[in-house]
């Protein structure tokens, strides 16, 4: 299970970074999303992997799994979802007004308008 989780986090991060380095906004956004998936699983794993255990201390259970990372992941998911929505809308706006979706810009264009 540890190996499976770490391979999953590793491949998500690697694909995320590769896509992030592309020149068009759409792959960059997908890359950012993959990276945030990777970090969500990573946070989850930071509370140690325990299978079949409740997230609260109960008398009849043999142990418990750390509930705090689950709360942290929830917060991180909500925030990254919102941020992704913002960047999607902004890139759409940039694409519609400019007619292309390249990420890089010329230093001198349009400053101080």
């Amino acid at each position: 299970m540890e190996a499976l989780i770490s391979i999953a986090i590793g491949s998500l991060t690697a694909s995320g970074i590769y896509l992030m380095l592309r020149q068009r906004t759409w792959p960059v956004i997908i890359g950012l999303t993959l990276l945030s998936y990777a970090v969500n699983v990573f946070i989850f794993a930071a509370g140690r992997l325990a299978t079949g255990l409740p997230a609260i201390i109960a008398k009849d259970a043999p142990g418990y799994t750390d509930p705090l990372p689950q709360a942290l992941v929830l917060t991180a998911i909500v925030i990254s979802f919102g941020m992704t929505a913002v960047i999607v809308l902004m890139s759409l706006g940039a694409w519609l007004t400019e007619g292309h979706d390249r990420v890089d810009m010329d230093d001198r264009e349009g400053e101080g308008k």
Binding site: S36, V39, A76, I79, M90, A94, T97, V103
Partner: peptide
């Protein structure tokens, strides 16, 4: 708004999303 400002904004958000992800790691 304005096209250039939007595009600079996309860059700014992308940078900060990467930073936020690193922060979470």
């Amino acid at each position: 708004a304005g096209g250039d400002r939007l595009r600079a904004g996309v860059q700014y958000i992308a940078f900060n999303l990467i930073a936020s992800t690193l922060f979470l790691f």
